[in-house]
Structure formats: structure tokens, C-alpha cells
Design a protein around this nucleic acid. Structure first.
Length: 486
RNA sequence: GGGGUUGUAGGGUAGCCUGGUCCAUCCUACAGCGUUCGGGACGCUGUGACCUGAGUUCGAAUCUCAGCAACCCCA
């Protein structure tokens, strides 16, 4: 091998090494956030990063789905960022859960404030004093509102972009009030179903479990959580729904007059999703070449790459006519007529997860076809003409199914029912263990200690054959997921 | 919570141990011109950096301390 060849190879390796393999998840994730222009972590405050325009467009399309799902029977609102200390400190258990992570505004200009103001870590204490004013009678119930806002938590653990932040930029939080506990419990169930549907539209399967009592939302009767299994086998909590019962209603005196003229406390729920859903989207579908985005949320759904030989114009003309045919059907299409060579464009748009690429060159034009390449690697030639747009939409649908099935298969392969502590310890190194558990708090803590992982909680509606609790040995059909969590 | 590593152009790096050779290396990116274009093109020309602060010193990218920030591993 001569020097020239050696140099060639070195340079090619350097180029390909730009994105580490997905098997090295942590580094792959960080590099991808930058290369695909999702968020820029270089903002000079710890735990706060900036959405690139491309990342923000992705975020907008994703949150559009949440809005659609909620707008059926919720109203969108917006409450202030600042919460007076006096309101924030009313609910004891809630304070205990959050006060170590609160940013405080203590000054207005140079003057110290008489009442400190908290930057919301979540908005219960901002919203509930107003619900007290808004809710008068049973006719006002059920009340369902949500907002999409930023929240602030002074995280002491290591921050991680989109996953553990000091400013959560995209917290969708819903709050509901109902006449009875049962209705509120039903609302929690509805919320969970909406969230499952939300993630299904992102082609992401989730684990759903009831969090153990020591891990529920501060001030809740119970909490249901959705978790996604990340490529490295750790889990990411990507949604929660909490039954608050009358806990907050009593503190904030939120009452309604029932049919018999009596004042009763409302029963409340709250449920939330943050930009962790974007982290999950990236982690679950991405591959060694970059992002892989479901059609529905891709900022660019179709990219057209002209393959030019000699005369540009005839080829570009065909590209433009296809571009406008797609645009007329509200498809987000981009004609990449830049100066780079086709190969460079392929890599660029693959990094950004574009679901469908169309290549048009002299050969295609001669044959009356276009070449399409789906982001999952499937390559086809489709006839040019009236049916092309529909054919591409069909490909998009197929891609969606491929992504979901692939993700589901991965998730299932990462969950294992274990029958000993040793087996549990080994399983949580690379996935989720389903662990027989009697349900007691003592055994739960003992499991976390001895397995070295967290209890996610009881899987819902899915019993295991009777087995002995791994700690106390009592026979039980109960179990819990255990995993190392993000 | 504990430990480790790191901070040099838009991005990635060399130099740091052993202070002066450095108006700082190479790759990439960006701008201009030309030839190109079916999987990361090439030539020529040009642009651009030592995290912040203090200290040691005749002299600091290099040594010391502090701050800020980032990443990795473990709990």
C-alpha cells in the first residue's frame, strides 16, 4: 500500500467516524443531537440548551400530536412562570418533593422582594389557587385544561440534554378536576390511553406501570408511568399520570356545590409529558447513520436529490414538477439543488432522518421513473406520473409500521421474567427484569438494594404465574419491572 | 451522592509532561473561482482559535489555585 492510499483510507475513516456507532449509545446520542441539529448544548448555563431550528420544527410536529389528542376535551391555557412562596409552600408533601430543586427570584431590580417568587418546577401551586376561583358548581365539572410551558428544576445530578435538564422547555402538563374520586381515577386511565396512543403515533412502544408508593408524585394518591427502554437497556420515564384525589383540593379549598346544595372537595388529576419524548424518539429509531423519523413528525418528509450530468435544467425541471406535486398535497418536501455531490446529500439528509428520498437522474427520466429510498434502507423505482404522490404516501405508512414493529421487537427482547436475585442483577445490566414481588414496601426496598436497580412498578393487567417473592418467598401473582433508570 | 477525564477556529484535533522554537499543526467547515455530479469530488485562493479570573515568571496554550462548562464511569 502506498502513502496516497493510506491517506485516503485514514481520511475516509475519519469521516465515517463522525457519528459513533449506536452501540456506544451515550456518545452516539450526544453527537447526533449536534450533527442532526436538534439542540445545541453550548449555551453557557448548566443543564440548559438551545433548540436548533430543525430540532424545534421536530418538536413542533411532535407536540402537535399531543395537542390534537388533548384538544378533543381539554382547553389549552397558560399560567405564569412565577409562583409566590406563600402559595408554593401550602401543600406539605408537595414541598418536600420539590423544595430542594426550586430556583427562587429574590430581587426586583436592586430591591429584595417581600415575598420570594419560585420559578415553577411544575404548576400545581400556580394553577390550583385559580381553580378555586373558577370552580363553583357541579356544572363546572369535569374541568380539563393543559399548558405547554417551560419549568425549572435545580438538578443536582448530572444533566443530560433533553433528558435531565434544569430548564425543561416543553412541559405539557394537564390538570383536571372531577366530582368524584372514581371519575378522577377514570380520567387517569384515559390520560394513560392517550399517552399510549401518542407514543404509538411516534412508533414507540412503552411499558406502563404503577409506580411504587415511595416513588409516586409528591401529593398524589398514586402515579402511573410510561417508560421507554433505551438502546443501552436503561429506561426513560416519558410520561406520568397522577391521581391527586382531594389532597390539593383540601389545601387550596377547591370546592363545588353538588346537586343537593352541599359544598364538596373536587377530585383532581394531573399528567405530563416533556421533551423526553423527543429523546425517546431519537434513541428508539435512530441508527448508525443518524436520525430516523416517522413521517408524521419529520420536518422534511421528502427530499429530492437531482443527479446531474451535463445540462442541469432538464433534470431540475422534472424535480421541480415533482416537488410542487408533493407540496400541493401538503407534504413537507425539499429539493436539494445545492452544489454538493449526490453522495454528500444522501448522508446529510439521512443524518436528519428524512423518511423518503427521491433520486432523479437522466436514467430515471429516460425510463419514466423515479428512484426512492426509504430511511429504513428500502429502495424502489416508482413510475412517474399521477400516482406518484399516493405511492409515496403508501411508503410512508409502511415505514411507520416497520419502525413500530422493529421497536416493539427490541423492547420485548429487552424484558425478561427472572426467578432469582442473581438473574435479576444480571438482567438489569442490559435490560428490564420482570421480578416476582409480593408488593410490600419492605420487600420492594430490599429488591432495589440487592438488585442494584429501581422498581418501575407493577405492570398493568398482566399477571405472572404464581411465583415466590424474591425477598420474602410468599407466593404471589404480582411482579414489578426493575431497571436502571435515566 | 462518589470518582475520573477534559476545555485550543463553526466542528474535530496537534502542541502541554520538559515555559521561549507557536503572529500555533493537520483534517473538516465556511467564502470566491473553475472543473465536476447514480453513496461523503478535486484544484487554486482566502477566513477563522489557546474557557474565564487570579497567581508564579523576564516570559504562560503550557505550571499553580479558583470559577464556569462539558463528557464518561459507579451508586
Amino acid at each position: 500500500m502506498n502513502d496516497a492510499q493510506e491517506t485516503q483510507i485514514t481520511r475516509k475513516d475519519e469521516r465515517e467516524a463522525k457519528l459513533p456507532p449506536k452501540s456506544n449509545f451515550s456518545e452516539w446520542y450526544h453527537e447526533l443531537l449536534k450533527s442532526a441539529e436538534i439542540v445545541d448544548v453550548r449555551y453557557p448555563v448548566k443543564g440548559m440548551s438551545v433548540w436548533y431550528p430543525f430540532g424545534f420544527a421536530l418538536r413542533s410536529h411532535v407536540y402537535q400530536i399531543i395537542k390534537e389528542l388533548l384538544d378533543v376535551d381539554h382547553y389549552e391555557t397558560q399560567f405564569p412562570l412565577l409562583i409566590p412562596e406563600t402559595e408554593f409552600m401550602k401543600e406539605a408533601e408537595h414541598i418536600k418533593g420539590f423544595e430542594d430543586e426550586v430556583y427562587w427570584v429574590t430581587h426586583g431590580g436592586r430591591d429584595p422582594l417581600e415575598v420570594k417568587l419560585a420559578l415553577r418546577p411544575t404548576s400545581e401551586t400556580a394553577i390550583y389557587p385559580m381553580l378555586k376561583l373558577w370552580i363553583r358548581s357541579h356544572a363546572d365539572l369535569p374541568l380539563r385544561i393543559y399548558q405547554i410551558v417551560n419549568t425549572f428544576r435545580y438538578e443536582t445530578k448530572h444533566t443530560r440534554p433533553l433528558i435531565r435538564l434544569r430548564e425543561i422547555t416543553s412541559f405539557k402538563e394537564a390538570h383536571t378536576a372531577h366530582a368524584t374520586w372514581e371519575e378522577a381515577a377514570m380520567q387517569v386511565e384515559i390520560a394513560v390511553q392517550r399517552y399510549i396512543e401518542f407514543y404509538r403515533r411516534l412508533a414507540i412502544p412503552c411499558l406502563v406501570s404503577k409506580r411504587p408508593s415511595w416513588d409516586k408524585f409528591p401529593g398524589a394518591d398514586y402515579s402511573i408511568a410510561l417508560d421507554v427502554i433505551m438502546p443501552d437497556g436503561r429506561t426513560l420515564q416519558v410520561g406520568t399520570a397522577h391521581l391527586l384525589g382531594t389532597n390539593f383540593a383540601k389545601t387550596y379549598e377547591i370546592t363545588y356545590e353538588d346537586e343537593h346544595g352541599e359544598q364538596r372537595y373536587v377530585n383532581q388529576t394531573c399528567y405530563g409529558i416533556s421533551e423526553r419524548c423527543i429523546a425517546a424518539l431519537i434513541a428508539v429509531h435512530g441508527d448508525d447513520k443518524g436520525l430516523v423519523l416517522p413521517w408524521r413528525v419529520a420536518p422534511v418528509q421528502v427530499v429530492i436529490v437531482p443527479i446531474i450530468f451535463g445540462d442541469r435544467e432538464p433534470i431540475l425541471e422534472v424535480c421541480r414538477s415533482i416537488e410542487s406535486a408533493l407540496a400541493r398535497r401538503n407534504i413537507r418536501v425539499r429539493l436539494d439543488d445545492g452544489d454538493e455531490r449526490p453522495g454528500a446529500k444522501f448522508y446529510k439528509w439521512e443524518m436528519r432522518g428524512v423518511p423518503v428520498r427521491i433520486e432523479i437522474g437522466p436514467r430515471d427520466i429516460k425510463n419514466g421513473v423515479v428512484t426512492i429510498v426509504r430511511r429504513d434502507g428500502v429502495r424502489k423505482t416508482l413510475p412517474m406520473g399521477d400516482g406518484l404522490v399516493d405511492a409515496i404516501l403508501a411508503e410512508a405508512e409502511e415505514l411507520q409500521a416497520v419502525l413500530y414493529n422493529r421497536a416493539k421487537e427490541f423492547m420485548d427482547s429487552k424484558i425478561k421474567l427472572v426467578s432469582s436475585l442473581d438473574e435479576a442483577r444480571s438482567q438489569v445490566q442490559s435490560g428490564v427484569a420482570r421480578v416476582p414481588w409480593c408488593g410490600s414496601v419492605e420487600c420492594g426496598h430490599a429488591l432495589e438494594d440487592q438488585v442494584g436497580a429501581n422498581l418501575l412498578g407493577e405492570p398493568r393487567g398482566d399477571e405472572i404465574p404464581p411465583m415466590g417473592c424474591l425477598i420474602c418467598g410468599r407466593e404471589s401473582t404480582g411482579s414489578t419491572y426493575m431497571a436502571r433508570q435515566y
